[in-house]
């Protein structure tokens, strides 16, 4: 899961190697050993790291329901789903490492607040239906954002996204299925489903980032082939995809302005109020502090384990060396 980022200073580059420009012009992939501008590298590190951080912070809101999943089948699916998010984090940190950074450093930057994660995860999962709404809407929005990244100019990121997108598509279907079961269940289950959709709809639209005329990074990212479509185009695509699905679920979306526009060939929808989103990004969302303290605590509680693993590996390496020298 991932949303477009906000507010970071736009990077531009004036000194771009010929070989790099040729790769972009031919719509080829830039690989780790290819020459690339520093600003391109920094932009990718920032974006991939934020994406990886989003995956691992995103484990928390859904992980919140593993112990309480209402059937064993749902529990198994949810455990597998949250496990997938950890797996996505792993591929993405590995993709970032091809750019010459280190996973441990990126995690430090997440923990000290210098790097961000997607703001959607600062909303709480209050009921079981929220697990469905996250799968359907949040993973749905993530897919719309991420499918174009499968054609991103940077090879390792593009390849990681191919695998991530396949799994996200499964996640979205399981979310839809949870909500479908609830909306066709008891009145209480139906109300639970509607309430979750009411709470997650607008934050999901915000995942596409600020409007195009207020998106500082977009132009450069598009020129570099990192970004393929504008925030507003992607948001529209998501709305067009989701409105018929809501009808199939028998649930309403909390926006009275949604209607089909024959002329545009798209659904019209109400204006997104970004005031709340900026508050959440500033750290004032419902769960910002909780998500960070959970993550930092897991990291700190695990320090002795990681230290032991390296100490053990070093001892083994020394023993191996002693054996080799002894044999020589």
């Amino acid at each position: 899961m991932y949303g477009n980022d906000f507010g970071a200073r736009a990077e531009t580059s004036s000194d771009e190697p010929r070989s790099f420009l040729d790769l972009l012009a031919g719509d080829d992939r830039v690989e780790p050993r290819d020459e690339m501008p520093d600003a391109y590298r920094r932009t990718l590190v920032r974006q991939i790291a934020q994406h990886a951080h989003s995956e691992i912070i995103g484990m928390q809101p859904e992980g919140n329901w593993i112990s309480r999943a209402p059937s064993l089948r749902r529990k198994a699916i949810l455990m597998a789903k949250v496990q997938d998010e950890a797996g996505h984090g792993l591929y993405l940190y590995a993709a970032a490492e091809t750019l010459g950074v280190d996973r441990a450093d990126l995690l430090d930057q997440l923990h000290n607040g210098r790097q961000k994660y997607s703001s959607i995860f600062n909303y709480p999962t209050l009921t079981w239906a929220d697990v469905g709404a996250i799968g359907w809407l949040v993973d749905g929005a993530a897919i719309v954002n991420q499918v174009p990244l499968c054609r991103c100019s940077y090879g390792p990121y593009a390849r990681a996204m191919v695998r991530v997108c396949k799994e996200e598509s499964f996640h979205q279907r399981q979310g839809f299925e949870i909500l479908h079961t609830l909306s066709h269940g008891t009145p209480a289950q139906r109300a639970m489903a509607q309430d979750a959709v009411d709470r997650y709809w607008w934050p999901s639209l915000m995942m596409f980032g600020p409007p195009d005329d207020d998106s500082p990074n977009s132009a450069q990212s598009m020129a570099w082939g990192i970004k393929r479509f504008s925030n507003d185009d992607l948001r529209q695509r998501f709305v067009d995809m989701t409105v018929p699905q809501a009808e199939a679920l028998g649930l309403t979306l909390p926006d009275p302005e949604i209607r089909w526009n024959e002329e545009r060939g798209h659904y019209d929808f109400g204006e997104v109020d970004f005031t709340e989103l900026f508050e959440v990004i500033q750290g004032n969302g419902p769960c910002n502090a909780q998500r960070m303290s959970h993550r930092v605590r897991a990291h700190e509680d695990g320090a002795w384990v990681r230290e032991a693993a390296s100490a053990y590996a070093q001892k083994q390496a020394e023993k191996q060396l002693a054996r080799t020298e002894g044999a020589a």
Binding site: S67, A86, Y93, A298, G302, V305, R306
Partner: peptide, 9 residues
């Protein structure tokens, strides 16, 4: 319980 709380990813 451990999923999201393990010492490493």
């Amino acid at each position: 319980w451990w999923i999201s709380r393990a010492p490493q990813l």
